[in-house]
């Protein structure tokens, strides 16, 4: 599914990465633990998280994650936005809990990693 369509289905707000909206999202992973995210072998996945700090973006940068949804109504600050833009990572804010966001995205047919 295209990132643009997925974003509208979760009432998301695109903060960075408008140029990535036409990209296809195939796999997603949900975690607040960056230690966990760094063990993921697949690239170009969508990360659903409630941890909104710079290390989330750094982790995505190293792990080649292209799309991040900040769930739980977490707002992104300027530093996070800047670093995400620099790394061409799409950041989307979502008002729902991680559970609901993940559930809806799963139902849209996005695949889990395991």
């Amino acid at each position: 599914m295209k990132l643009s369509e997925l974003t509208s289905k979760i009432e998301g707000k695109v903060i960075t990465g408008h140029s990535l909206l036409e990209n296809e999202v195939e796999y997603a992973f949900a975690s607040d633990l960056m230690s966990d995210v760094l063990t993921v072998d697949k690239e170009d996945i969508l990360l659903i998280t409630g941890l909104n700090n710079l290390q989330t973006i750094r982790t995505a940068e190293m792990a080649e994650i292209r799309f991040i949804i900040f769930a739980r109504n977490k707002k992104v600050n300027c530093d996070i936005k800047e670093l995400a833009e620099e790394n061409n990572i799409a950041v989307i804010e979502c008002p729902w809990s991680v559970f609901k966001t993940s559930g809806v995205i799963y139902q849209l047919g996005i695949k889990p990693l395991f």
């Binding site: 607040d32 633990l33 960056m34 230690s35 700090n53 290390q55 982790t59």
Partner: peptide, 12 residues
């Protein structure tokens, strides 16, 4: 709080 400290880093 920063999202680390799970004891997974060195094995990874």
């Amino acid at each position: 709080e920063m999202g680390f400290g799970a004891g997974m880093g060195l094995p990874n």
